[in-house]
Write a protein that binds this DNA or RNA. Structure first.
Lengths: 338, 338
DNA sequence: CTGAAAGCGCTAACAT
DNA sequence: ATGTTAGCGCTTTCAG
């Protein structure tokens, strides 16, 4: 391949500068010359070399998006929304997945320094382990938007879901359905010492005056298999549990099989609430009750914040907190009681 | 950011050439000089500018991977396998999703011309619509590996699954369980006039002497919702159907809810076979019987073929056909009969 | 309206 | 062992 602007110019019998003018819709060029150049370019199938362009412009029109995990379908959904908005705003996206490995996340953060993206949207998993790197990006004012980060993290744009509220809504729903023994499944990648989900879970219990049993909480990895094992363990160890709030919908999906293995049926003998409102949740045998954040507008917000940051670096950072809401379907049996 | 090799050289009081030698582990440099340079680089947090490098090397060490769809989890699984092997071989991956839109696929194919990747692995959806573009890539000997392509496509490396066999194995399994009325759900993106799955479905019927009812076949889009609607339509329109072979596991997952809405239970009143052996299939309430191709080795093969092609362009193209196999779980009730 | 020339940052052939 | 220099292909300043 390697047909350069120089070759096009040659073919059209003009200088590279003139070819450039034609190809980039610059003014001050004779319409006929322009036509000649454009024809030559089409004939030779000219495509500007993106590296040369990026090198000189110091701009790639690309944003990097770092997800924690490629298996959880919620990130696929995010990807489509983010990609759509990014395109509207003239950017391409590169999607990366840290797959639960801090080193991978670190490596991707370095992308920024390699100047191969104009900005970064990160769903951080290892804010603590990689705090140096995040810090470097922030003090160097590299365009960065975080999806989910503790309040104390300043100097950076953040879009976050009120997870305390999420935990509260889920738990309250279960309590209102009469459950007194509610398990909670938490990913060990959840940010913070006492993740928001747990705080909300506690608040709902306090509000209803239902005591909390510490053994009802279990941690697990991010894989479906991890969820499956943890849920089985929890349910066998704590047979009184009649309801379960899962860290996310993806892991919640594993509860169907776990329940069945233990001769339980959802929702009859086990109520389940997830979080994320993934598409699959609507199409499983017992549609999943869940806590929904508006992923589409969330994705748009992420992109918009980033683009604004790129365009006007001096603007003070913003923190946007989204309020999730409960979506009642059938996995808690709520609709059956009507 | 913008700390160049020149700055590092300056800081270490050497010429850029020497700095380069140190930073790239070239020989013919005094150990002390090397150390001085490396220290300076570390101190300044030097990262080579990737665009300058790509520009001069005409090599990006990046491969593009074009998937048809970001929602179907099978592509997430492929992505991890492809990514892992690519890394082993020194490449980064860029994953792209054409989302059922020919123009997107076309746009991504153009990536190649923009020389921003060294090669392309494509899971083609629109081989026909975009045949010009594919042709261009092939005649220009751009490193390209296709995953799934008709036999008549020559001059390009192909990894393909024997879908006729897949259809045969699935259907035979159902026939052997005594089903006489077997529905088949086919994605409208399936390649070819009579997709392999259907041919295998027919062969199994012929072999067992069971007649085929044309109304038992239905087409659908690639989204879960499409699958759900199609399955509902098929089952309501053809109530005799007692078994279903779905285009892939992802769409098969929708059959659980569709069945339930029609007051059927899987596997009791409806047997279901999928294809792909996605992780989720193991964890749904009734683990999914499916046709499995070995995705991990498949992903590796794709990468290996591409890397070989990049390294030795003159090597004759290869076509590798994988033989899928049946994985019996519970969605056909097979194990219950024992 | 058109063109010459410099430079983005890295690599590499060719001195010294 | 170290340095000089040219060039990858594009963009852009400045002249004509």
């Amino acid at each position: 391949m390697a047909v350069t602007i120089h070759k096009v110019a040659e073919a059209a019998k003009v200088s590279p500068r003139t070819a450039y003018r034609a190809l980039n819709n610059e003014p001050h060029i004779h319409p006929q010359t322009r036509r000649r150049v454009l024809e030559a370019a089409a004939r030779l199938n000219y495509q500007p070399n993106i590296h040369a362009r990026n090198l000189v412009l110091q701009k790639t029109n690309t944003i990097g998006v770092i997800f924690p995990d490629s298996r959880n379908p919620v990130f696929g959904e995010f990807a489509t929304f983010i990609d759509a908005r990014a395109r509207e705003r003239g950017y391409e996206c590169h999607f990366l997945h840290s797959e639960g490995e801090p080193e991978r996340e670190a490596k991707f953060l370095n992308l920024a320094f390699v100047s191969s993206v104009d900005g970064l949207i990160v769903f951080p998993n290892f804010l603590d382990v990689n705090r140096e790197l995040y810090g470097q990006l922030i003090i160097n004012r590299f365009p960065l938007v975080l999806r989910g980060a503790p309040e104390l993290l300043l100097g950076v744009d953040v879009v976050t879901v009120d997870l305390e509220l999420a935990g509260y809504l889920a738990t309250r729903h279960l309590l209102e359905l009469g459950h007194k023994h509610i398990g909670i499944l938490i990913s060990k990648f959840a940010l913070g010492h006492l993740p928001g989900r747990i705080l909300g879970y506690q608040r709902a219990h306090e509000e209803k005056g239902v005591p909390i049993h510490p053994g009802y909480r279990i941690e697990c990895g991010h894989r479906l298999e991890d969820g499956y094992k943890a849920i089985r363990e929890l349910l066998s160890g704590q047979p009184k549990i009649t309801a379960l709030f899962c860290h996310n919908d993806y892991l919640a999906l594993a509860s169907f099989r776990a329940a069945r293995d233990l001769k339980r049926r959802i929702p009859r003998n086990l109520a389940v609430v997830g979080l994320d409102d993934i598409e699959l949740g609507q199409y499983c045998e017992v549609p999943l009750t869940t806590i929904s954040h508006q992923k589409e507008s969330e994705g748009q917000t992420l992109v918009d914040l980033l683009c604004d940051r790129i365009d006007t670096p001096e603007k003070p950072p913003r923190r946007i907190t989204l309020k999730p809401k409960l979506v009642v379907r059938e996995s808690c049996g709520a609709s059956l009681r009507r």
